[in-house]
C-alpha cells in the first residue's frame, strides 16, 4: 500500500465523521449537542490552566500509584501463589470470588474502612485492578513449559535466578494481557471513586459540570477522559511491543508455518 493511501485510510473516516458532525450541528440550537469548534475551544479554556494542576494531575497521580501497586503486587503474589501448589489450591476459589465482585462496590466499602481521602482512592484502584494481573500470573506460572523447566533444573538454575530468567519472562504474555484489563478497570475506578466521594478530581469536576448544566464543559470532560484512555492504550501498546517483541516474533513464525 502506498503511503498516501495508508494516510487516507488512517484519517479518512475520522475526517468524514467530524465534517458530518460539523454540518449536522451547524444550524442546530440544541442545548445538549456541542459544536466541534466550540468544543475544541472549551476543551482548551476549561482544562489548560489551574484545573489541569488541581484536578487532572492529582487524578492521574492516584491512577499511576494505584496501577503501579496493583500490577506490582499482582505479579509478586501471582508468582508466589502460582509456584506453590498448596497455596494455589487453598486460595484459588477465594481469588475467583474476589475477581467476580464488581470492583465499583469497593468504593463505598473502602470509603467506610479508610475514610474519604487519597489513600482510599488509591486503595480502590489497587483492590479492583489487581485481580486480572494476579490471576493471569497464577495461570501463567502453572502453565510454564515442561521442557524449559527441565532445562533449568538440569543446569541447576533455581531460586531467584529461575524466577528472573525463566518464570517471569515466560509469564510476561499472560501478565501483559492482565495489565491491559487492569488499565481499563483502574481508569474506571479512578473516575467513579471521584464521582462517588470527592470534592476534587476529574470525575468530580465532570459531574459538577453536569449538575450545573455546563454542557460544553461536561462534553469537554468526556473528551479528556477519552484522551486519557487513549493515552493509556498507546503507552500500553508501546511497552507491550518492547517487552514482548520476542513473543510476537515467535507467534508470527509459528503462524506462518
Amino acid at each position: 500500500m502506498s503511503p498516501l493511501k495508508r494516510i487516507a485510510y488512517f484519517v479518512g473516516l475520522p475526517i468524514v465523521l467530524i465534517v458530518l458532525w460539523y454540518a449536522l450541528s451547524f444550524g442546530s440550537t440544541n442545548f445538549f449537542v456541542p459544536k466541534p469548534i466550540e468544543l475544541a475551544q472549551t476543551l482548551w479554556t476549561t482544562w489548560i490552566g489551574d484545573r489541569f494542576f488541581e484536578d487532572v494531575l492529582p487524578s492521574l497521580g492516584r491512577l499511576a500509584v494505584g496501577l503501579f501497586f496493583a500490577i506490582g503486587l499482582g505479579i509478586v503474589l501471582g508468582l508466589l501463589i502460582g509456584s506453590t501448589r498448596w497455596l494455589r489450591n487453598l486460595l484459588e476459589p477465594l481469588l475467583e470470588f474476589f475477581r467476580a465482585i464488581p470492583p465499583p462496590v469497593l468504593v463505598p466499602l473502602l470509603m467506610l474502612l479508610i475514610g474519604v481521602n487519597d489513600s482510599m482512592k488509591v486503595a480502590v484502584i489497587i483492590s479492583g485492578a489487581i485481580w486480572p494481573v494476579l490471576l493471569n500470573t497464577v495461570e501463567g506460572v502453572r502453565a510454564v513449559d515442561s521442557v524449559l523447566n527441565d532445562s533449568c533444573r538440569s543446569y541447576g538454575i533455581a531460586g531467584f535466578a529461575r524466577i528472573r530468567y525463566f518464570v517471569l519472562p515466560a509469564v510476561t504474555p499472560q501478565i501483559m494481557a492482565g495489565v491491559r484489563q487492569s488499565l481499563s478497570i483502574g481508569l474506571i475506578l479512578m473516575v467513579i471513586s471521584e464521582m462517588f466521594a470527592s470534592s476534587s478530581g476529574l470525575g468530580f469536576t465532570i459531574v459538577q459540570f453536569q449538575r450545573n448544566f455546563a454542557i460544553p464543559e461536561m462534553w469537554s470532560g468526556i473528551v479528556v477522559l477519552g484522551l486519557i484512555g487513549l493515552g493509556l492504550a498507546i503507552i500500553f501498546q508501546f511497552v507491550e511491543r518492547r517487552v514482548l517483541h520476542w513473543y510476537h516474533g515467535l507467534k508470527e513464525i509459528t503462524h506462518d508455518s
Partner: peptide
Amino acid sequence: RATHTTIEFLRPIPSVALIPLAVL
C-alpha cells in the same frame, strides 16, 4: 481498513465517562 483508526480511538474511552451524559 477504513474503520480501524476510529475503532482504536473510540474503544479506550472509559464507559464511565458517559455517566454525566446518561444522567442528562
